[in-house]
């Protein structure tokens, strides 16, 4: 009930009651500055977490349901073995399409490493066969055994070996982002609690006078809670706005910097930073309320 009254009072405001708490400069500035700084960092942690999430999803989607066969064979046999592999693939359940990459496509794949004038014909470059799976997927073990028996130079690569660590890394990055957010929230609570305790200690005389004239604990606590909640809300609002602006102004790189350029928000996720100031205010509300009631219990 008291908590509900506190929340109502917080929203409604009470000009007269607010005046009983002196405007102590240092704790006010500290609360607003800490909330602002933490909100700024929280925006980045949020952006990191969301970007890592998107990256993990993209890698999972892009690499799932595709596989490659590398064929190394003598020049004279390569066409025949390619055809044999395509025949095997056509008979394998779970494979939607399969095709051998043309020389131009293979050259384009190698171009970033060897340049545009690569003499593909003079090099022992394996032939690549691209596979698209159906939704059900294929039996990779069975296909490997058949390829080994019929075309020994063919190696099936279903991307699992290197796709899984990348997705795991992106998932871990997303988790770290959320852990950072929790740590930021915890640090904010700790700093605001310290600031509130400092303000309460500085205002011991105010507390004594108020108790002497018949003020209830909830009334006194409410006045401090309102003050600190407003400071935290204001500070976090500015910090979150600056953080969001900084994210928006990050330079957009091309595909080469895909990860860095992806650090940010997309679509509706731009609304996420809006949750930070109310979260900071709620943290300040609880931290100050607990600190104030604990301090008041020491007074009769």
């Amino acid at each position: 009930m008291t908590l509900l009254l506190d929340l109502i009072a917080l929203l409604k405001g009470d000009t007269q009651a607010d005046r009983i708490v002196p405007r102590t400069g240092q704790t006010a500035r500290l609360t607003a500055a800490v909330s602002g700084a933490m909100a700024f960092l929280a925006v980045f942690a949020l952006a990191l977490s969301l970007a890592a999430g998107r990256l993990a999803d993209r890698w999972a989607e892009a690499l799932a349901q595709s596989a490659t066969i590398r064929l190394s064979a003598p020049e004279a046999e390569i066409e025949a073995q390619t055809q044999a592999i395509l025949t095997i693939l056509a008979q394998t359940p779970g494979i939607a399409t399969a095709r051998a990459l043309s020389d131009d496509e293979q050259r384009a794949l190698l171009e970033p490493w060897f340049g545009p004038d690569l003499p593909l014909a003079d090099l022992p470059v394996p032939r690549l066969i691209e596979i698209k799976e159906t939704a059900e997927g294929f039996d990779a073990l069975g296909l490997r055994q058949r390829l080994a028996a019929e075309t020994p130079g063919a190696v099936l690569d279903d991307h699992t070996r290197w796709r899984r660590p990348l997705i795991d890394a992106a998932d871990r990055l997303r988790l770290l982002g959320w852990v950072s957010l929790i740590l930021i929230l915890g640090s904010t609570a700790a700093m605001i609690t310290l600031a509130a305790q400092a303000a309460l200690a500085l205002n011991q005389q105010v507390l004594r006078v108020l108790r002497l004239v018949g003020a209830r604990d909830s009334y006194i606590a409410r006045a401090f809670v309102r003050r600190f909640t407003h400071r935290a809300l204001t500070g976090a609002g500015v910090g979150a706005a600056l953080g969001t602006l900084a994210i928006a102004l990050l330079p957009r790189a091309a595909d080469e910097g895909a990860f860095l350029s992806g650090l940010g928000f997309q679509g509706a996720s731009w609304l996420w930073p809006l949750t930070i100031p109310p979260l900071a205010a709620a943290t300040a509300f609880w931290a100050t309320r607990i600190a104030a009631l604990r301090r008041l219990r020491g007074l009769r």
Partner: peptide
Amino acid sequence: CEFLDHLPVSENIALPLVVA
């Protein structure tokens, strides 16, 4: 006697009414 030093005398005197 202790007061709220940041408030004027009139508001200090009215304080019991305000908290009530």
